[in-house]
Nucleic acid binder design. Structure first.
Length: 289
DNA sequence: CACTTGACCTGTCCGC
DNA sequence: TGCGGACAGGTCAAGT
């Protein structure tokens, strides 16, 4: 769920809401969600001020004045939600969007100055928050192997094709979901991009013509940009930093559209199949093996 | 090494 | 209505 556009939307929200706040206190209910020693929390988090919010792939980074950062992966059901007296008062309409916090999915609660709070909620406990020195972020395993940012202007379609073709015997869907090939694409945008490029998701990479791969790159970039514009996709759990849902899903052409007509072939219904172990949505007419 | 599958979790939905 | 099982999808570990 939280893929590149969703994490980017959270980043932009936090940039406005969180930068400048000082952390007063931290509590968590699940060691798995926040595995740091409390001694580190006391020394490098409590009393520190938020200086910047960054994103790489689907990973969010909250930089602190202590030269440490909160590194966050939302995985499937993670949420980062800010609640501040300056933005939401009691009875504010946004309260109804996500309910009262903390709730039973709240894993970490950050108390901030000026009465504000930051919540890390995660129903399924796959996500995590880690406090690490800012300078060491590039050395964590994920950062060392993650591929280029799709929206980086220096990432050329030639390189995209080269990186994809390293996985020549796997399916094209598995290849674009592989974070070492390129960063940030998950199940929703994989399906949307493959429909846009008219490629069947189960096609082996080696069997996809280069002009189609080039088209796929263009489509993925277009879709990711459009989704950021729409505030991301809310399928089930995702909300932005203010607890609000995204609207991209209403623009989706195939994702969760099974049984509805294809936009290019009104007589053909979108079908749901399984590729690379994931629910996959296709138009059987424009995406053939 | 390349590739696939299962595990991690919990809530929801579907069929009986 | 209750209950079991399938499903949701990001990443890593373990398996082929």
């Amino acid at each position: 769920m939280p893929e590149l556009p969703e994490v980017e939307t959270v980043r932009r929200g936090l940039l406005t809401l969180l930068v400048g706040h000082t952390v007063k206190k931290v509590t968590h209910d699940t060691p798995k969600s926040f595995p740091n020693a409390m001694a580190d929390v006391e020394q490098f988090l409590v009393g520190a001020t938020v200086t910047d919010i960054r994103r790489r792939a689907k990973v969010l980074m909250i930089d602190l004045s202590s030269q440490y950062s909160l590194v966050i992966h939302l995985k499937m059901t993670g949420q980062i939600v800010y609640r501040g007296e300056l933005v939401f008062g009691a009875g504010h309409p946004n309260d109804s969007l996500i309910g009262t916090l903390p709730d039973r999915s709240t894993r970490v609660e950050f108390e901030l100055d000026r009465g504000a709070k930051l919540f890390f909620n995660d129903q399924r406990k796959f996500g995590w928050v880690r406090l690490i020195p800012t300078i060491e972020i590039p050395n964590i395993d994920f950062m060392k192997k993650v591929g280029p940012e799709p929206l980086d202007v220096n990432f050329t379609d030639k390189e995209f094709i080269q990186r994809l073709q390293r996985r020549k015997n796997t399916t094209i869907k598995a290849a674009i979901l592989d974070q070492t090939v390129l960063a940030g694409v998950g199940n929703i945008y994989a399906d949307e991009g493959l429909w846009g490029a008219k490629i069947h998701p189960a096609t082996r990479v080696k069997d996809v013509a280069e002009n189609k791969l080039k088209k796929l790159f263009t489509e993925l970039r277009y879709i990711l940009e459009l989704s950021i514009e729409k505030g991301g996709s809310t399928d089930r759990n995702y909300v932005n930093a203010e607890g609000k849902k995204g609207s991209y899903i209403s623009f989706a052409r195939v994702f969760r559209k099974e049984g509805t007509p294809c936009q290019r072939h009104p007589d053909t219904l979108i079908k749901k199949i399984k590729v690379a172990g994931r629910g996959t949505h296709i138009c059987p007419e424009c995406q053939k093996l």
